[in-house]
Simulated assay, not measured.
Amino acid sequence: MPNRIIQAVYIDDDAALGRLVQRILGRRGYEVEHVTTAESGLARIADGDVDVVILDHDLGTSSGVAVLEALRVREQSPPVVYVTASTELSIAVQALKAGAVDYVVKTVGDDFEVLLVAALEQSVERARLMRAKEEAERQVRQAKDRAEMLLAEVNHRVANSLALVGSLVRMQASAVVEPGATAALAETQARITAIANLHRSLYTSTDVQQVDLAAYLETLVGELGNSITASGRTPTIKLHAEPVSIKTDRAVSVGMIATELVTNALKYAYPVGEGEVRVSLSRTPSTQVTLSVADDGIGWTGNGTAKGSGLGGKIIAAMSKSLGAQLEYHHRPIGTLASITFDEMAS
């Protein structure tokens, strides 16, 4: 027991028994306040500073069960030990169902004192442990909320910083005269944007460990489409994506692969003129996901080596390896279809 006086309220219409209980528990270090009605007992409990309640079953004009029902709707009610002269098991069951934490039968002699004190000590200790548990859980929730807030802020700042870097690269590309350097800078800017969009997705998400891959790809494809429009070219990008959620680090790999495949399709399939690039994200009957990029251009028809085997190809190979997948080119009458299939649930 803690080294302080335990405050108890004894609700019983029997004044003589009330004085007896006060003497018994006074010797045990309790301070017992005796009230004779349910109303006065509930009022005293509402005032606070009550560690435990001793509640008699028969209160004359009301019953102890009615008091229990009234206490159930209150927050932070003290534990209740139910006492009665009846030995009927149904009364004990009714009281425990109504919210009492223990039950003691009134008897003549020392047994009642021993049982009552034991019930009170266990009830007070249980309540203390419950409060400690709730406080610990509250602190854990607060710490979790703070960590999530800080992580969201980090993702927000990283997204903004990467967007700034991407803008600087785009400005540099516009100032370069040599076509090859301009193209390389444009591809670099697209790669930076892919990572920035992921961090932007994490900033607005409620779960920083998982990424809505369909929403992420939609943003990514939109950015690539805007870049094409800004450059004066006319190919269009269409996306069909089923709902897929994967871990954040794997989403980075998928985003980089999608960026490189779309960039390759735009670069090699339609070097001059209109065309369409189709990005698809779909589930297989198992827990696997397929990402594919298709075009109807001249990039590759299944003969020889696919174009775009430089830095972009190395990035695709590295990202595919991290996903446990391998890029495949499929034979088509016209154009190119590239795809990877990976496990959605892999860590």
Rank of each mutant, 00 (worst) to 15 (best):
A38C: 02
A159F: 08
S174P: 09
G109K: 07
A241L: 12
E33I: 09
L266H: 09
G29H: 03
H199D: 00
L217D: 15
L311Y: 12
N303F: 11
E31R: 06
V140T: 04
L89H: 08
A190H: 04
H199L: 00
L164T: 12
I298T: 10
G324A: 04
L55K: 06
A230D: 07
E344C: 15
I5K: 01
T36Q: 07
T301L: 15
A8G: 02
G312T: 05
L120S: 05
R191Q: 11
A196K: 08
E178N: 14
L151E: 09
L217S: 07
H240D: 15
Q326L: 05
V158M: 03
D51F: 00
A196S: 04
K247C: 12
A338F: 09
G255A: 08
Q209Y: 14
S167K: 15
S339T: 02
I45R: 01
N3R: 14
V211H: 00
A136C: 10
A8N: 07
F112Y: 10
V93H: 01
D212P: 08
A175R: 02
T84W: 00
A184L: 08
G255M: 06
S322N: 13
A98K: 05
D343L: 13
V154W: 11
K106R: 10
A175M: 10
G310T: 06
G109F: 01
S253A: 14
V272I: 06
P79L: 01
R128F: 01
D343M: 03
Q139M: 12
Q326I: 01
L116N: 03
G297V: 02
S90L: 14
V9D: 00
E134A: 12
A214L: 09
Q122D: 13
E31K: 04
Q326N: 12
E344M: 14
P79W: 05
A346V: 05
P285S: 03
G310Y: 10
A196H: 04
T336W: 03
E135Q: 11
V277I: 07
V158Q: 09
E218L: 10
G18T: 06
V35E: 01
A147Y: 10
A269E: 08
G18C: 02
L220F: 03
R126V: 06
A184T: 11
A100W: 06
A183L: 13
P243F: 07
E148P: 15
A241G: 09
T336P: 01
V101F: 04
S322Q: 14
T87I: 05
V176C: 10
E223D: 13
L129R: 03
V101E: 02
T37E: 01
V254H: 00
S231Y: 14
S245K: 15
V140Y: 03
K133E: 03
P235K: 15
L17Q: 07
